[in-house]
């Protein structure tokens, strides 16, 4: 067991965990934040996406040890005081979420994309979200939600 100290959604926590435990399991089991989902366990589907020091990572591929000292933002850290973030609001209004299992990862990927490119082209959106698989929507409503979110998030925010 190793002591791992990290900042999760702005709060500093210290956890005893096996060093090779997946960050995904640390988040879900030890921190009880179940908004981060497992889809494939091999870094293909992006359902477990979180922001680690501002970078988008597949938490199923990150050993807990590597998260020591890191700033982690999960879907639970995107909204503030129960108020939807504009990206969440746009996913909701534009039909960007169907079954919802890819949605947390997709929203974090969008958040990351808009930090990197505040005014992304459709091609940049398509490429920026290509690591997050959605089986329900065909992505069209997701692109629509992201484009709507661009209008609402002109200023980059920090997680």
């Amino acid at each position: 067991m190793t002591q791992i100290t990290l900042t999760i959604n702005g709060e500093t926590k210290t956890i005893e965990a096996p060093p090779m435990k997946r960050l995904l399991d640390l988040i879900r089991e030890d921190l009880h934040l179940t908004g981060t989902k497992e889809g494939c366990g091999e870094g293909e589907c992006g359902s477990c996406s979180v922001l680690m020091n501002g970078e988008l990572v597949n938490s199923c591929l990150v050993p807990a040890l590597q998260a020591n000292g890191a700033r982690i933002c999960t879907i639970e850290g995107i909204s503030t005081k129960g108020r939807l973030h504009p990206i969440q609001q746009c996913f909701l209004e534009r039909g960007g979420a169907q079954c919802g299992i890819c949605t947390p990862g997709m929203i974090l990927a969008t958040h990351h994309l808009l930090e990197k490119y505040p005014q992304p082209t459709l091609l940049q959106i398509q490429e920026g979200l290509a690591g997050n698989l959605c089986r329900c929507t065909g992505y069209t409503r997701i692109f629509d939600a992201v484009q709507q979110a661009i209008l609402k998030t002109q200023q980059p925010t920090n997680n």
Partner: peptide
């Protein structure tokens, strides 16, 4: 929908 975009919807796992 709100529960889903907030990550609050509870799936079996």
């Amino acid at each position: 929908g709100a529960a889903k975009v907030l990550g609050q919807a509870k799936y079996v796992d």
